[in-house]
Simulated scan of single mutants.
Amino acid sequence: MMFRYRTRNPLPNAPRTRAPRRRLALLLACLAAPAALAGDPPDSPPSAPPPAWEQLTPEQREILIAPVRDRWNSEPERRQSMLEHARRWQELTPEQRRRARHGRHRWEHMSPEQRAQTRVLFQTMRGMDPEQRSALKAQWRQMTPEQRREWVERQRGEE
């Protein structure tokens, strides 16, 4: 099952994306939570690893759960997709989760032009077999920035 995320597209002619902004905010909050839960200042090195879930106080658990509960209650139409996303995340291996986090990090640091190019590349590669994808990747790496822009514009014109 594919998910569709509602996002604002910075480029009006670019295809819609699946950027999970709210989930990203929740993930970032959870990643920042261990330091807050442990009482360490944000810039200090962590003194000890965060406790296991069972060792958290009810207040600490509430800090972690509240954003999810708020989203669940405020977006009833998205509840099924939230459950499906959680199920799929649980099925990922640690390596797949690491790669997903790395991809999110790369996406956050892309310029709007790079994001637009990535969207077009993704849509184009979706219909390709692995050999075609490899060939396009090799071709892409050899292109100059101007050639990449021209390629993206040609692909958009074919849509």
Rank of each mutant, 00 (worst) to 15 (best):
F3C: 03
Y5N: 02
Y5V: 01
R6C: 05
T7E: 05
R8T: 09
P10G: 00
L11R: 14
P12L: 06
N13S: 10
N13W: 14
A14N: 10
T17F: 04
P20Y: 05
A25K: 14
L27P: 00
L28N: 15
C30N: 06
L31A: 15
A33D: 05
L37V: 07
A38Y: 01
P42V: 05
P46G: 04
S47W: 02
S47L: 07
P51Y: 03
A52W: 00
L56H: 02
P58R: 10
P58E: 15
I63V: 08
I63A: 02
L64D: 02
L64N: 10
L64Y: 09
V68Q: 06
D70M: 06
D70C: 05
W72T: 04
E75P: 04
E75S: 10
R78L: 12
Q80G: 01
H85N: 13
A86K: 01
R87K: 04
Q90F: 03
Q90A: 11
Q90D: 02
E91D: 14
E91A: 12
L92Y: 11
P94D: 12
E95D: 12
A100K: 06
A100H: 08
R101P: 00
G103K: 08
R104E: 13
H109R: 14
M110F: 08
Q114C: 09
R115V: 10
Q117P: 00
Q117S: 00
F122S: 08
F122P: 00
F122V: 09
T124C: 11
M125Q: 13
M125A: 12
A135G: 07
Q142T: 13
Q142V: 01
R149T: 15
Q155I: 01
G157C: 02
G157L: 12
